[in-house]
């Protein structure tokens, strides 16, 4: 009995001590943790390009190197291998790490962000030096394989690519070669230009179920040299579909007939390096989706 009472007393005392010591801690606001300090970025100093993807650096021939180098090298005109501004952390910069850091931290230093009225960013005043596009299939395959190998995390090849540059693109940029995508603005520009020239009969039977796909082929100047309606079966059997499909094809030809104002010519003039992307494309016409105007 006495022992039990003693144990009880000791336990109660213990609880009392714990409450006395710990309760203030629990009641008080949490101790200052390392709160994330918002990083203030001065937007005035950030240059925003018109394009959503970065133009590439293209290997230059020794003759072009002299011209190209000043455009892409950092401000200091040292002949040494061009280094990106070092991050503040001052980490040792082995090749691979440096390459990655440049990709992520460098905010497009030398692309002169002149305001360009069109949807296309003016890349450079001078024509970009680039190897001729291989035409044959095997060559294309080899080129693609070569390109793929570049995209693999083989740091040595990445760093090698930075030694000699010819374009005024961004180091580490992925645009400009075969893997580059046209920007949304550029696609929208073409879409809008064609839409403006597309007229149809809104009362055509079954128009609300039609989607017309036309594959067009362009030469390097942006001239349309073929426009094929893909659904030939329906084209041959459905008069209404044929009419709407022909109106869509007419819109393409009307755009093409606009000479220098053709959206395809403008694309060719502004983004010749992306020819591989747009030498063939499929235009999908949906009469009712965007409304009849």
């Amino acid at each position: 009995m006495g022992a039990s009472f003693l144990y009880s007393l000791i336990l109660h005392a213990l609880i009392f001590v714990l409450v006395f010591v710990q309760l203030p801690t629990w009641m008080s606001p949490p101790r200052e943790k390392a709160e994330p300090v918002p990083i203030m970025i001065d937007l005035k100093k950030v240059e925003i390009a018109d394009k959503t993807n970065l133009p590439p650096q293209v290997k230059a021939s020794p003759a072009q190197e002299q011209k190209a180098a000043p455009k892409v090298s950092p401000p200091k005109p040292k002949p040494a291998p061009p280094k990106a501004p070092q991050p503040k952390s001052g980490q040792p910069a082995p090749k691979a790490a440096a390459a990655v850091e440049k990709k992520t931290t460098k905010p497009a230093p030398k692309v002169k962000s002149k305001p360009v009225p069109s949807a296309f960013t003016k890349k450079a005043e001078k024509p970009v030096a680039r190897p001729d596009r291989p035409e044959e299939t095997l060559d294309s395959l080899l080129a693609s394989v070569e390109k793929m190998s570049k995209t693999l995390p083989d740091t040595s090849s990445v760093s090698k690519g930075k030694e000699h540059t010819a374009s005024d693109g961004i180091k580490g940029g992925t645009g400009g070669d075969l893997s580059q995508k046209l920007t949304i603005s550029e696609l929208d520009f073409i879409s809008t230009a064609i839409r403006k020239n597309w007229n149809l009969d809104p009362g055509a039977e079954g128009i609300d179920t039609m989607i017309i796909e036309i594959r067009i082929a362009l030469d390097k100047s942006g001239k349309v040299y073929s426009a094929d309606i893909l659904d030939q079966k329906r084209y041959q059997t459905d008069k209404s579909f044929r009419s709407v499909a022909e109106s869509a094809r007419r819109a393409i030809y009307i755009c093409d007939g606009q000479g220098a104002d053709s959206p395809f010519r403008i694309l060719a003039a502004k983004r010749p390096e992306t020819y591989g992307q747009w030498k063939e494309m499929v235009l999908r016409f949906n009469p009712m989706d965007g409304g009849i105007f």
């Binding site: 294309s140 395959l141 693609s144 394989v145 793929m148 075969l178 046209l182 696609l187 073409i190 879409s191 064609i194 839409r195 403006k196 597309w198 007229n199 149809l200 009969d201 809104p202 109106s247 869509a248 819109a251 992307q277 747009w278 063939e280 494309m281 499929v282 235009l283 999908r284 016409f285 949906n286 009469p287 009712m288 989706d289 965007g290 409304g291 009849i292 105007f293």
Partner: peptide, 21 residues
Amino acid sequence: LVVLTARAELKIDIAGAGTNP
């Protein structure tokens, strides 16, 4: 090799049209 090197075809949507005569 072909599968690896095959690229998606560029597609552009044109939504809506005019009704001018």
